[in-house]
């Protein structure tokens, strides 16, 4: 269930915490597993993480459902996480989100038919002076305009 590569990554996180406190690595472990499984967590993968970290399954499930960065439904290969909080709103985020929805033919929370992209409205991502902005993968894209969005989205493979 957990690949050797994932185990190696999880182990490097476990090393940061005191002996016996390996469950501190659960947040990263869940992210690592999620990344290896189409950006999605399942009951079984959460249990596998819990077993690996020697913690109760329910404790890992609590973490997996409390934090926003875990997905429990199918998502696209790329998730566009669009900030719609106040600074982005003041800078026209709502219109840009509508543009993106029309362009992709999906509503926020949905996945494109080819499974490539899903769009999600998220709360403040902490880049307010670069508003409007969104995140794809590890990358922030700031000072967005319709042209900029088109270019970024058209480049997603």
């Amino acid at each position: 269930m957990i690949s050797d590569n994932a185990k190696k990554q999880i182990d490097s996180w476990i090393e940061k915490y005191p002996e016996g406190k390996q469950s501190s690595a659960v947040m990263e472990a869940l992210k690592i597993i999620q990344k290896e499984n189409n950006n999605q967590l399942t009951h079984d993968s959460i249990q596998a993480v819990a077993d690996y970290l020697d913690m109760p399954g329910i404790a890992a499930a609590e973490v997996a459902t409390f934090y926003e960065n875990y997905n429990h439904q199918p998502v696209g290969k790329h998730i566009i996480r669009f900030c719609h909080n106040i600074s982005c709103m003041l800078n026209g985020a709502d219109d840009l989100i509508s543009h993106l929805e029309t362009k992709l033919g999906v509503k926020t929370g949905e996945v494109t038919d080819d499974g490539l992209i899903s769009v999600k409205k998220v709360e403040c991502l902490g880049a307010c002076v670069g508003a409007p902005m969104f995140q794809i993968g590890d990358q922030y894209y700031e000072n967005l305009t319709i042209d900029k969005i088109d270019k970024i989205v058209d480049g997603l493979k």
């Binding site: 909080n85 106040i86 600074s87 709360e123 403040c124 902490g126 880049a127 307010c128 002076v129 670069g130």
Partner: peptide
């Protein structure tokens, strides 16, 4: 853990 809307200095 910077996340209060409007805040982006620690980044």
């Amino acid at each position: 853990d910077e996340g209060e809307p409007g805040t982006c200095k620690d980044r």
